[in-house]
């Protein structure tokens, strides 16, 4: 027996799936017409992205390459930093400070990325250029640094939750054997957290992958294959943001940008699913144990 309110609740419950399906549909629906102009092979493996040139080139390989570079570099900075911060907050910082640090990081995590873009552009880039004598301050390193800063709070708070949720019995077990706090941490807690850490890495990566504004503002926007981290680059997400505003609806360029969106969507979707699956599997193990 279902009444009207039950039905409204039911429908609302399924809205998120409906939206995911709709997003998938509209991305592909606006991408497929591109294949009349450029083949999938040209799209995925083309080495030139000149959508407004005559003739235009719609190859996303340089964008994909830059995305991988920047994401990889960012996770390389973010993950260890978050790890160190999480241990600092749970084990080193005085108890009173802990609460404030958590709130501080929480507030920082909601700082809009465009503000990090502003800092990267107005402070870091000139510094790189004039003090460190780089060719340009708007480059992969700058973008990765700003991206890391904005990403750090998320993995930190997730790691912190896992570290402090570690069962006191297990901790005491090690301490009863004479291990000090640091040894308990390195020999008992951290090895026990491989699963969640893998999941946190994936979820952070998903976030970095899709972040748009920072890279758009500070990475220098050159659709080339970067050879080192001091070169400018352009990633998938920021390409959409930079070009969509000036692209007429229902042109090959428009379709190509939706294609990039579809690629971005599918990749983050997969990364997030993997992260979630690892997390769920770990939680199940914990429940059994």
């Amino acid at each position: 027996m279902k009444n009207i309110i039950d039905r409204i609740i039911f429908v609302s419950g399924w809205v998120s799936i409906a939206i995911i399906v709709a997003i998938t549909f509209f991305l592909f629906y606006n991408w497929i017409p591109l294949f009349k102009t450029a083949s999938p092979i040209e799209f995925f493996f083309g080495t030139l992205w000149y959508p407004t040139a005559i003739p235009p080139f719609y190859g996303i390989l340089p964008l994909l390459d830059a995305t991988v570079w920047i994401s990889f570099l960012t996770i390389l900075i973010t993950f260890p930093s978050a790890f160190v911060l999480a241990i600092f907050i749970t084990h080193v910082a005085p108890k009173r400070l802990r609460y404030f640090l958590k709130i501080f990081l929480e507030i920082f995590s909601s700082v809009p990325s465009v503000i990090l873009g502003l800092i990267g552009l107005s402070i870091v880039a000139p510094y790189f250029q004039s003090v460190l004598n780089m060719d340009t301050g708007q480059n992969i390193l700058n973008a990765a640094l700003m991206l890391s800063l904005i990403t750090i709070p998320m993995p930190t708070s997730m790691m912190e939750d896992f570290i402090s949720a570690f069962s006191p019995e297990q901790k005491e077990g090690a301490q009863a054997l004479g291990a000090n706090e640091f040894e308990t941490l390195t020999k008992v807690i951290i090895p026990g957290l491989k699963g969640p850490f893998a999941s946190i890495a994936m979820l952070s990566l998903g976030r970095i992958f899709g972040e748009t504004m920072i890279v758009l503002m500070v990475a220098g926007n050159a659709a080339i294959f970067p050879t080192n981290i001091f070169q400018p680059a352009r990633v998938l997400s920021s390409t959409i943001a930079a070009e969509m505003g000036e692209t007429p609806v229902d042109t090959p360029h428009f379709y190509a940008l939706f294609g990039i969106g579809a690629v971005l969507f599918v990749m983050t979707f997969l990364i997030n699913i993997i992260g979630e699956v690892i997390r769920i599997r770990y939680e199940r193990q914990m429940m059994k144990g």
Binding site: S16, I20, L27, I240
Partner: peptide, 25 residues
């Protein structure tokens, strides 16, 4: 569990993709 995972996934969709969806729809 699938529903819950979809909610988490929706949270992970890049915001620029939301922009594309909003434009198209």
């Amino acid at each position: 569990n699938v529903l819950r995972m979809m909610v988490a996934n929706l949270a992970g969709v890049p915001s620029v993709v939301h922009g594309l969806f909003g434009l198209a729809v």
